[in-house]
Amino acid sequence: MELNHDTLNLEADPLESVEQAVIAEQYAYERDDTELHIAVPGSWRDHQIWFAWRPELDAMHLCASLELKVPEKRFRDACELVNRINERLYLGHFEVWSEDGSIIFRHALSLPGGEGMNAAQAAGLIGAAKEAGERLYPAFQYLIWGGKSVSEAVSAAMFETAGEA
Rank of each mutant, 00 (worst) to 15 (best):
E25N: 11
S102H: 08
D33Q: 14
E134G: 04
E134F: 07
K73T: 11
R84D: 07
W97M: 13
D77V: 02
A157H: 05
R45M: 06
G146M: 01
V18F: 09
L109I: 15
H37Q: 09
E87L: 15
G147N: 10
A12Y: 15
L8K: 13
D32R: 02
G133V: 08
A59P: 07
S17R: 02
C79E: 10
E25C: 05
G133Y: 03
Q26D: 09
G146K: 05
E35Q: 14
V70G: 03
L10T: 01
D46S: 00
E11Q: 15
M117H: 06
D46A: 05
E30C: 03
V82S: 00
D100G: 08
G116A: 15
E25H: 08
Q121R: 09
R106G: 01
L66Y: 00
S110I: 03
A123L: 10
A120L: 14
L36D: 03
A165N: 08
P112M: 14
L81G: 10
L3M: 13
L36Y: 01
F159I: 05
Y142T: 00
A162P: 02
T161S: 09
A28N: 07
A162R: 07
L62S: 01
V22T: 11
D46M: 00
E67C: 01
N86V: 08
W145R: 10
V18Q: 07
K69Q: 14
M60H: 05
G114M: 07
E16K: 12
E95D: 08
N83S: 14
L36N: 10
H107W: 12
A24T: 10
E11H: 08
F140Y: 07
V96H: 08
N86K: 00
E67L: 04
E164D: 04
V154W: 01
P55K: 07
L109V: 15
W145Y: 14
G114I: 12
T161Y: 00
P14L: 04
W50Q: 11
L10K: 13
A128C: 14
N9I: 12
A78R: 02
V96P: 00
G116D: 13
I144V: 05
R74S: 07
P14M: 13
D100R: 12
G42H: 12
R74F: 08
E131Q: 12
T7V: 15
S17Q: 07
A59L: 12
N4D: 15
P14Y: 06
M158H: 05
S110K: 13
T34Y: 12
L66V: 08
I126W: 04
F94K: 04
R54P: 01
G116H: 05
G101R: 01
R76H: 08
G101L: 00
K69S: 09
I85S: 00
A39V: 01
E2T: 04
H107G: 00
A59I: 06
T7Q: 13
E72S: 10
D32E: 13
